[in-house]
Design a protein around this nucleic acid. Structure first.
Length: 299
DNA sequence: CTCCAGGTGATGG
DNA sequence: CCATCACATGGA
């Protein structure tokens, strides 16, 4: 277990801002200190706030070397989010409110292949349903790994001693599955889209690694060539899988925000980091909506 | 049981 | 170009 000091970093805001489906709460060290399980790049990390430290103190389950080599980049900790937030216009009270609310958000550096498949699955599904289907797709491989949690269990006996997890399946792994296999995970009408993307990736016709060198526009065009990938899924893959921070995925929520607060057009000055600003807005809009729903139920 | 979910492609004007 | 519509399933 490693102790770290991390500035401008909010686990909940990252986990709940709709960018990843495999970062979930798995218990807590004590009330108010949830532990998050993060599955990425073939391994699994536990991370939580440090009950004995200040708000910038965190505990992680990996070694110093793993933290430096994998997770610092994964959590995008070498970027200055204060500089991104400075793009906000001082008179844009809506964005300032979102930024205040979502301070600590990071745009994770996730794997392109996982993003592509996950966001194909995401269309017309709720986030909990997406998580379920992605987990089932990962478990299909039977490639069961076990994470030792004894140090966490020692702090809180209610925390499990070990956690089983499955890495996200590679192209080669997915290529072994039949349509029925894929469909059994709950992919519904998107099963054919996934199978076709897998087929193209396994023949080399689709080479995601090679797309990293393209411009934003070229990258989107290549992604849009994939069946079942429209502008929304392509944008999410570009932003979350290729870290293209100027690309803004426009779902129903962002369209509403754009109409209501920006008269249908994003300010030109926001465009270089619109993907980042969008993440603050999305997080705010979604959580405010949840609050409204709760109010309705109470009345 | 009903309703809806970080959409997309096909079809028809 | 824009408006509709079907689409499979899980979660609430």
């Amino acid at each position: 277990m490693l102790h770290l000091t991390i500035d401008d970093f909010d686990l909940r805001a990252i986990a709940e801002s709709g960018q990843c489906f495999r970062m979930t709460e798995v218990g807590s060290l004590k009330p108010g200190f949830p532990v998050y399980k993060v599955i990425a790049y073939g391994s699994c990390l536990l991370i939580s706030g440090d009950p004995d430290g200040d708000e910038n103190s965190f505990l992680v389950s990996c070694s110093e070397a793993q933290w430096e080599n994998i997770y610092k980049t994964y959590f995008d900790l070498n970027s200055d989010y204060g500089a991104y937030r400075d793009y906000a216009d001082k008179n844009d009270s809506f964005l300032l409110k979102c930024i205040d609310y979502g301070k600590g958000i990071r745009i994770l550096n996730q794997e392109p292949w996982e993003m592509l498949i996950s966001f194909i699955i995401s269309q017309r599904k709720s986030v909990p349903a997406i998580r379920t289907t992605v987990e089932r797709l990962c478990a299909l491989s039977g490639d069961e790994k076990v994470l030792d949690c004894s140090e966490w269990h020692a702090i809180n006996p209610e925390f499990p001693e070990s956690i089983v997890y499955y890495p996200f399946p590679s192209v080669e792994t997915l290529a072994k599955y039949s349509l029925e296999d894929i469909n059994s995970t709950g992919t519904g009408y998107r099963t054919g889209y996934i199978a076709e993307a897998v087929r193209r990736a396994s023949t080399g016709e689709l080479d995601l690694e090679a797309l990293g060198g393209l411009s934003d526009g070229e990258l989107l065009d290549e992604l849009l060539n994939i069946q079942g990938v429209g502008i929304k899924v392509a944008s999410c893959t570009a932003l979350f899988g290729f870290h293209r921070l100027s690309i803004c995925p426009e779902d129903v929520w962002m369209k509403r925000v754009k109409e209501q607060f920006y008269s249908g057009e994003w300010p030109e000055s926001y465009k270089p980091v619109l993907g980042v600003l969008q993440q603050y807005m999305f997080y705010y809009a979604r959580l405010e909506h949840e609050k409204e729903k709760i109010k309705e139920i109470m009345n």
